[in-house]
């Protein structure tokens, strides 16, 4: 199985010698759901921002399908950030137009179908929606693309348990099995069942990259229980 994303000795420093990400080297394959796991401040979001070109690595190299991060990679990576990026005055329809114009792999029909499932009115303005609904809309936009890599930063952090189930179903039902999903969270118990592989990060360093099955087999416990053991305070 060929690799989608290659990170070679990637570091990001802030200020004088403060490492947010420290020498991460990893290759992510196609067709996997990978959990990027770690406590707050472990460098997950910084790493994700670098993969999406929102931050430049201080050193090291990131390549997507053999090419540096740029317009080409952005056309194939579908990114859900850990914040709302929608302008309050825009309607959902406006953003659907936007996605349709810029992403060739975007399916408007799929997005409208998911909005309909959740009984969200496409003519609504974002300023009238609750935080949870905005997050759902963003997830719908992201999962309505036929991307090669989905990068989801804390997709279930701000929503209620019922919505979490819907979000996980949405992720599972909408990604192509040739694609991969890199999903960052510290709510491991909720997503453990969908993970193929896991990456543990601590203080900017990658401390583990393994399959979820191998952790369960070798450690004799769930990924969540093992995470709690590794990151016990």
């Amino acid at each position: 199985m060929s690799d989608l994303l290659d990170l070679t000795n990637v570091s990001k420093t802030y200020g004088y010698n403060q490492y947010a990400v420290d020498g991460v080297t990893i290759s992510l394959p196609k067709g996997r759901i990978i959990g990027l796991l770690g406590p707050n401040g472990s460098g997950k979001t910084t790493l994700i921002k670098m993969i999406n070109g929102l931050l430049r690595p201080s050193s090291g190299e990131i390549k997507f399908l053999g090419e540096p991060i740029g317009p080409q990679s952005k056309a194939h990576i579908s990114y859900l950030p850990d914040r709302t990026y929608l302008a309050p005055g825009d309607t959902i329809t406006t953003v659907l137009d936007y996605f349709e114009d810029f992403y060739e792999d975007f399916s408007r029909e799929r997005a409208i179908s998911m909005l309909s499932d959740l009984r969200i009115d496409p003519s609504a303005k974002f300023k009238t929606l609750s935080k949870g609904t905005k997050e759902k809309v963003q997830l719908i936009l992201v999962m309505s693309r036929q991307a090669d890599l989905y990068v989801l930063d804390e997709p279930i952090a701000g929503v209620d348990p019922a919505a979490r189930d819907y979000i996980l179903r949405t992720i599972l039902n909408n990604y192509s099995h040739n694609a991969s999903i890199l999903i960052s969270t510290h709510l491991i118990g909720d997503i453990e069942q969908i993970l193929d592989e896991v990456i543990f990060m601590r203080q900017g360093k990658m401390v583990l990259y393994s399959t979820a099955a191998a952790i369960r087999e070798q450690q004799g416990k769930s990924v969540d229980a093992y995470f709690r053991e590794v990151f016990a305070c």
């Binding site: 999406n52 070109g53 929102l54 317009p71 080409q72 952005k74 056309a75 990576i77 990114y79 950030p81 914040r83 709302t84 990026y85 929608l86 302008a87 936007y98 810029f102 992403y103």
Partner: peptide, 18 residues
């Protein structure tokens, strides 16, 4: 500033454009 460098910039800066 908002559309390029604050939260809305997360959409603008990840568009597949130069």
């Amino acid at each position: 500033y908002r559309s390029m460098y604050s939260d809305q910039g997360y959409l603008t800066q990840t568009l597949p454009v130069k």
